[in-house]
């Protein structure tokens, strides 16, 4: 099938596939278990807010309330660190990773289990279409879910610093959402491809993440991991926003302690390339898999 024909049928073909995939992802019980876990820091944030909001000191400047900590520092600068650190475990960290693995399994493996893949393979739909539309549906659902989550969490955490604090650090929220998007573009493609090739995708995805992404990143040859490029972007953006962070905070140093962070634009580009390459790898797997 020619590429042009695929583009032509995209408007008819994608909506029903997206509808089906997003429905399945959202009604999956595991999604809600993970969402419940994601909500834990939100609940904690609210608790902290009600416990300690009396301890802060406020000052009115030009009709805006600015809050300070008891030791006299800007409260929002304190809270933003908290937001980013927690996000690195939840919205753009481990929990998001679990969500990605689960999504990929629901999108690809489940089609094999349900035997709908057999029907799709006897229907005139190209493996690239099968893979890409599921992948895009996964990205959209995941990004909306985690984007929404990050925003809510951001508001809850920054609430302590008032409207001023929320607006002051909005750039950080934008950065987190950008990372969410790039994370999903890169990782979901790899996870989906793993689902095509392996019988036990959960295990293999996790092993890949643990041994490839976690152990390799922070070493000399970290440029072969996606984590390196994600970290490069975070590092670069934070420096730009005037945070005092060092490359070694994000493991972007080699054994000689030289900074090896990659340019953010190139990083973004590489993540996109990885995402697209795994579309082809995954599609090849679908087309060569026999029943």
């Amino acid at each position: 099938m020619e590429i042009s024909k695929m583009f032509k049928r995209f408007p008819t073909l994608f909506p029903p596939i997206f509808k089906d995939c997003s429905y399945r992802l959202i009604t999956n019980k595991l999604t809600w278990v993970l969402v419940a876990i994601l909500m834990l820091p939100c609940a904690l944030g609210l608790l902290v807010y009600y416990e300690f909001s009396g301890d802060r000191i406020s000052e009115e400047v030009n009709g805006e309330k600015i809050y300070y900590t008891s030791s006299g520092e800007l409260l929002h600068e304190d809270l933003r660190v908290l937001f980013l650190e927690i996000s690195e475990y939840f919205g753009i960290g481990f929990i998001a990773l679990l969500l990605g693995i689960m999504f990929s399994s629901e999108l690809i493996s489940e089609e094999y289990n349900l035997k709908t893949m057999q029907i799709l393979r006897t229907s005139p739909i190209h493996p690239i279409e099968i893979f890409t539309y599921r992948y895009i549906s996964g990205i959209i659902t995941g990004v909306i879910l985690l984007g929404l989550y990050s925003t809510i969490f951001y508001i809850i955490v920054m609430m302590g610093a008032g409207i001023h604090g929320i607006l002051e650090e909005i750039g950080l929220l934008a950065l987190v959402i950008k990372i969410v998007i790039l994370n999903w573009i890169g990782f979901l493609s790899i996870f989906c491809a793993i689902n095509v090739y392996f019988e036990r995708p959960y295990l293999i995805c996790f092993i890949y993440w643990l041994f490839w992404e976690q152990i390799m990143s922070g070493q000399n040859y970290q440029q072969i991991t996606l984590t390196h490029y994600i970290n490069s972007i975070i590092y670069d953006s934070l420096t730009e926003m005037g945070w005092s962070v060092t490359a070694s905070d994000y493991g972007l140093v080699n054994s000689n302690n030289d900074t090896i962070a990659t340019d953010p634009l190139i990083s973004t580009f590489i993540i996109l390339i990885v995402g697209i390459s795994f579309i082809f790898i995954g599609s090849r797997g679908i087309s060569s898999k026999q029943f």
């Binding site: 089906d20 429905y23 399945r24 349900l114 035997k115 029907i119 739909i125």
Partner: peptide, 23 residues
């Protein structure tokens, strides 16, 4: 096929038309 091969959450019309759009 011999086995069930459905998206169980769809109605029959959704299901059949889903594949017809592929055609």
């Amino acid at each position: 096929p011999e086995y069930d091969c459905f998206y169980e959450h769809m109605s029959a019309v959704d299901y059949v038309s889903y594949f017809l759009m592929i055609h």
